[in-house]
Design a protein around this nucleic acid. Structure first.
Lengths: 356, 356
DNA sequence: TGTGTTACTGGAAACGTTGCCAATACGCTG
DNA sequence: CAGCGTATTGGCAACGTTTCCAGTAACACA
């Protein structure tokens, strides 16, 4: 059925198509009912008659109405949207965390907007601000720098619930978070290497300010201490999670006096750099040097030899984060924390170390 | 300086903190100016005196005002936001495309909301609808199914500009798109294999409905045809881009009579499956069978032997998509198309085939 | 002093919703 | 038949902005 006033407007329209939006008002007019009734049907309120419902739904169909979520959110005071700030979506680990979170949030009727800080603290701040201005209902993020004043200030201005991923901010128990048990994972990995006879074990990881780095170092230390061994201080390299740093650090380790017999890479990007450096130096993984990485990605399984990893369930982390956020959104109080276990997957990249 | 009526409201407030938002009205009141003047300062309109500007900015600072982008977008009729629907963010390729697009869009003052269809056509539709209802100004996506009616219908309802990534819809020149030159890339790869003496070349790829699959097949055919060779029809496996399918297809190929001497994997997830199957069958890449993959990811470079790939610049694709969209947003007309070149990176996974 | 111009500022009407409150109609009881 | 509850509907004021249109003051000029 053609719109009765179409011809008229067509004729009158000399302007460059102002593209008037089809609103609930049009629906109401077409159905011959009040605006508020249309609203009631759309939000299925209980007290609306069957005939009214049908009338309105038909009108919606007829005029081709599309809800305006901006207006709705503005009026309602809630966007049913949560923000997610990832450090680096091109890292499959973060991508999986995001997917897990999104899935859980969608189930609960929320939608998620995913953004990418690229590990840049300034972008972090800008994104928090932007999402705040967008009036998101909650936020999941993994701040690029736990100690940065600016970031904390932006977060503080946010009155909506926040869940951190693998981060802890000053005053430990102030923020909700999903934390993976890096310490025990690393402890197991180092125990494994020490069992194999390695003593010169190197650890390459990101900036020491970040929780995963701190916790892994704790696990590392704990393993050495438990056997009364001295920490190989000269083999600890902390700077960034990038492939570039992994390569550089490995190179430095290899050319130094008394190089390591085993290397632990604290992330899947670092691993890439480590492998490049080893390849360049013509060291064969497993044979010449043992290798452990963190987080199981296709590369670790398919490398030859396959690489021993400290694993954790990324998707589960995302789901857990969403779960916490949903609890908080539902009015849950205190800071909530979920700990995600890690496990050691032993593969051929770790072999017995040199006999003493 | 304390808010003069704070004490009053504190006393009156028995309710559970309705958390009244700080609006431009408060700013105006605090500065003793009109609402419209505050707006003018915030949008830096030309005709506002220096004293007014300072007054308002001070007041903003004093009352801790935060713009409400919902209200602003509603009134303005534009969100300065573009949507991006990715098939699978856990695939680093898509993640890079998204990053490229986001970077370019941000430069131009737009922000991007990234969503994930997980390759599910229904989710595709739902996401297009959601973003439409959110009143995004434009959309970049790579539809999961080029032929699905529903998806096309949802896209048609969108009056804002759309740029497709590596997809073409019915009526070729109707949609703007960034297309990679899969045909020539594949042509080069097959030429390379044929030069090495291979004749039994297998191709494993996704659903034939998708442009990359079609185009790669075209390149494949062209290479065979150019030498007057028959197409190895029995070695063409098309179903999905997943690792699972890659593994299954490879297994089938290997156990069949007259198995291939070279395999081309049409995507980085497929490659994972192919490698698993080869490993399970104890075939050594390069020696027992040659291998080519599409898109250069860390795995291909670091595998032993390193894997020959048909490469393209993912980030550039994203940037190009953003560029096209920006042109359209600025009022550019007709459908715009950018073609992204592909190149063959030869590595040790491709070795001479069996002598005839 | 009057007039015109310029430079700024204030008021008020939108943008498309939702949700409260009042109004209507209906059926039922006393 | 009056009175009342129930079920449903309409009207209207928000939500926080932007923008158009007048209005004001200051100033120069005749």
């Amino acid at each position: 059925m053609a719109n009765p006033d179409e011809a008229g407007t067509n004729e009158a329209t000399a302007k460059p198509t102002p593209v008037k939006e089809v609103t609930m008002k049009e629906v109401a007019a077409h159905a011959g009912v009040a605006l508020s009734s249309v609203s009631r049907v759309l939000n299925d309120h209980s007290d609306v008659s069957e005939s009214m419902r049908k009338q309105v739904l038909d009108a919606i169909e007829a005029v081709g109405y599309e809800p305006n979520l901006l207006a709705s959110s503005l009026r309602r005071g809630s966007t049913k949207t949560v923000g997610f700030i990832a450090n680096d979506i091109s890292n499959p680990l973060f991508a999986e965390i995001a997917m897990g979170a999104e899935r859980r949030l969608n189930e609960a009727g929320y939608s998620m907007v995913l953004t990418n800080s690229e590990g840049n603290p300034e972008r972090d701040e800008a994104l928090i601000r932007l999402l705040r201005w967008r009036r998101i209902d909650g936020l999941i993020l993994s701040v690029a720098d736990e100690e940065r004043e600016g970031t904390m200030a932006e977060l503080a201005k946010l009155s909506e619930p926040v869940v951190l991923i693998d981060r802890q901010v000053r005053g430990a128990d102030e923020a909700s978070a999903v934390l993976s048990d890096h310490a025990n994972g690393m402890r197991a990995a180092i125990d494994h290497l020490l069992d194999l006879g390695h003593r010169r074990v190197a650890l390459i990881s990101g900036r020491p300010g970040l929780r995963p780095v701190r916790e892994r170092l704790n696990g590392f230390k704990a393993a050495f201490r438990a056997r009364g061994l001295d920490l190989p201080e000269d083999l600890l390299k902390f700077d960034s999670f990038s492939a570039t740093f992994g390569q550089q650090a490995t190179h430095e380790l290899l050319v130094a006096d008394d190089p390591p017999t085993a290397i632990v890479a604290g992330g899947n990007l670092l691993l890439i750099g480590v492998l490049r450096a080893l390849q360049a130096a013509e060291r064969v993984v497993g044979t010449d040097i043992s290798l452990v990485s963190c987080d199981d990605v296709p590369l670790t399984e398919l490398h030859s030899p396959p690489i021993t990893v400290i694993d954790r369930d990324a998707e589960q982390m995302g789901e857990a984060a969403a779960e916490l956020l949903l609890k908080l959104l539902a009015g849950g109080d205190g800071p909530l924390v979920t700990e995600i276990p890690t496990s050691l997957i032993r593969r051929a990249s770790t072999q017995p170390g040199p006999a003493d």
